[in-house]
Design a protein around this nucleic acid. Structure first.
Length: 584
DNA sequence: GCCGTTTTCGGCCCGACTGTTTTCAGTCG
């Protein structure tokens, strides 16, 4: 599947056109096409082969032809022409916050700036302030941003942003002028990474909230401050935005700043069709100017004839059509989970003994916990030898007596070796309640080899769950070049479950692939991959990622009560017996 | 660039904040 690659291509085109000063609308068209392609749930090669490109919203004749050309030849003449017209370093200037296409162009024309290094030199020589339209303040601000550029990554992983946001919300929530405080933007939609930390507070006195915000102890620098919007830089280098809104605007404002932009634009279109105007300050009738109620998000959706749509779905990936048709999914909730199927103890690389993990799981209200320490092959994680595996079984047997009716099961997180083989003999695997399989090493194999390895693992008759299928780390490491479409199709056929790993660094499968899995009829599991009792909590990130993928409780194995979960395991075992009997 | 239940041409979201201006352009979300 080359969706991400093709999306990237059109993003690049949009960047270049932007620096060239092309029509903003054309730039937006390319970005919209890129967004649609990135969110596509089928391989774009398949769509193209079936002649369905132009059916994708935002893709017309011209872009469809470009996609065809690129997929067919591996090149796009238009793109290559564009790249010759613009110095490669010029596009990089857009990374600098506060430096947009117009300024990039201006710097190029007036000062010959063609790269970040050129910009640095121009600033050092104080040449920016001589350019008409720029001044000393701009020069100083860009100098600061340049310095900050390498220290701050482009996007923040959700696992970093969410705890920071929750800390700030807790501190500001105590202020008497704050009635309500929520994250906005991709943070509220639980995207796996966020561009910035965006908060929204309801208050009868927004200015007082702004004043309290800039006075918080972690504020290193106030980057911008107005009566309703303030941006600060924390001592840890993270930026936080806060908007203050009056309670009567809460619903429309929260909706506006939750986005996504694509979702909001669609909603405004719907409002226009109904003779309404929708913005952050309310819902207005176009004819009379009368303002309709907008204190809650339900008001906003009701005004355009829709039920409330959960933030996790607001990506314009069909949720508006589903809402119009009355077919919104019944998204899974954390309370639906009856157990965790992927946790580590101090028998491998966890920090707590099995009993503490079991107690923590029980305290979360689970009925069962599957302990899945690493297999021998992952030496760095103190993987279990066969002897230690059997010794651990005795410990787990004892816990079951102690903790009944809570159930502790013994599983394994098995390495797939570079050649596709597993770590233990089949006879040992049969002793385990659940076998889950992972790729941790040799992730950079070429697509054919790594896919073959993954397929072998999924197809192995003793595999129950395929863990974090790509091995990606959010904003840090791109996953292996596994052909996930092929993996999911095989998983659907063999009944092997596929994991949504809730560790916020992983979130693997991601939202788009989780949704694809449900479409293909693949059974999912949502797990914490905890290495400590507190780590069990991170399963909520997995649940939210699943919600972003339209996943319902019925799609997820570990929403089943213990008896049904056990029945599934038994059925897997029975199938294995039948298969090996028929082979023999 | 895309799109169309009044349109195949003429629209395409819009407001806050900043800095450089003498009334507004650029950037961002």
């Amino acid at each position: 599947m080359r969706n991400a690659e093709v999306a990237r291509l059109f993003e690049d085109i949009a960047d270049i056109l932007e620096v060239q000063g092309d029509s903003g609308f054309r730039v937006r068209a390319y970005r919209e096409a890129a967004r649609q392609i990135a969110g596509l749930r089928e391989p774009i090669e398949q769509v193209a082969a079936a002649g369905g490109l132009e059916a994708i919203p935002g893709i017309g004749k011209a872009i469809a032809a470009k996609i065809d050309e690129y997929l067919r030849t591996g090149h796009l003449a238009y793109y290559e022409r564009l790249r010759e017209q613009v110095p490669p370093g010029l596009v990089a200037l857009l990374q600098v916050p506060g430096l947009g296409p117009r300024t990039a162009q201006l710097l190029h024309q007036e000062l010959g700036v063609e790269s970040l290094d050129d910009l640095r030199a121009a600033i050092a020589a104080h040449r920016l302030r001589s350019v008409r339209g720029l001044g000393a303040k701009t020069e100083e601000r860009l100098a600061r941003e340049l310095e900050r550029l390498h220290e701050s990554a482009r996007r923040l992983p959700l696992g970093v942003a969410r705890p920071v946001a929750e800390q700030v919300m807790a501190m500001l929530g105590e202020h008497p002028a704050v009635l309500q405080i929520e994250p906005g933007g991709s943070l509220r939609r639980w995207r796996d990474s966020v561009g910035d930390i965006d908060l929204l507070a309801a208050s009868p006195d927004p200015e007082a909230v702004m004043a309290a915000f800039v006075a918080l102890p972690f504020v290193r620098e106030v980057l911008s401050q107005g009566p309703t919007f303030t941006r600060v830089l924390r001592t840890d280098g993270l930026g936080v935005d806060l908007r203050g809104v009056r309670p009567e605007f809460w619903g429309t404002a929260l909706h506006h700043f939750t986005g996504s932009r694509a979702h909001s634009i669609r909603l405004r279109d719907l409002a226009n069709e109904r003779g309404l105007k929708l913005n952050e300050y309310g819902i207005f009738r176009m004819d009379t100017g009368e303002r309709l109620p907008g204190a809650t998000e339900e008001d906003v959706y009701a005004a355009v004839g829709l039920p409330w749509i959960p933030p996790e779905l607001r990506e314009d990936r069909g949720e508006i059509e589903a809402a119009l048709a009355g077919h919104l999914p019944h998204l899974i909730e954390q309370d639906d989970l009856r157990g965790d199927l992927h946790v580590h103890t101090n028998w491998s690389d966890g920090n707590a003994p099995p009993e503490r993990m079991a107690e923590a799981a029980r305290a979360l209200g689970y009925e069962y916990l599957v302990i899945t320490d690493h297999s021998a092959g992952l030496g760095v994680a103190n993987g279990l030898s066969v002897e230690r595996l059997r010794a651990q079984r005795q410990v787990i047997d004892r816990l079951n007596q102690e903790y009944a009716p809570f159930h502790v099961l013994q599983g394994i997180e098995m390495e797939i070796r570079a050649d596709g083989a597993l770590d233990y003999p089949d006879a040992v695997l049969r002793e385990l309640d659940l076998v889950s399989i992972s790729l941790h090493s040799n992730l950079r194999q070429d697509p054919e080899r790594v896919t073959a390895r993954a397929l072998a693992a999924v197809e192995h008759p003793l595999t129950d769950v395929f863990n974090h299928p790509t091995g990606r780390l959010v904003e840090k490491r791109r996953g292996a070049d596994v052909d996930l479409e092929a993996v999911l199709q095989v998983a659907a056929r063999t009944g092997t479950a596929v994991e949504i790993n809730g560790t916020p660094e992983r979130l693997d499968l991601d939202d788009v692939w989780a949704r694809r899995a449900t479409e293909l009829g693949v059974l999912l599991v949502i797990t914490s991959d905890a290495h400590s009792p507190e780590g069990l909590q991170s399963i909520r990130y997995g649940v939210m990622q699943a919600r972003r993928g339209w996943v319902e409780a019925r799609h997820v194995l570990n929403t089943r009560p213990y008896a049904a979960f056990r029945a599934w395991l038994n059925e897997r075992a029975a199938q294995r017996e039948r298969r090996s009997a028929s082979r023999a």
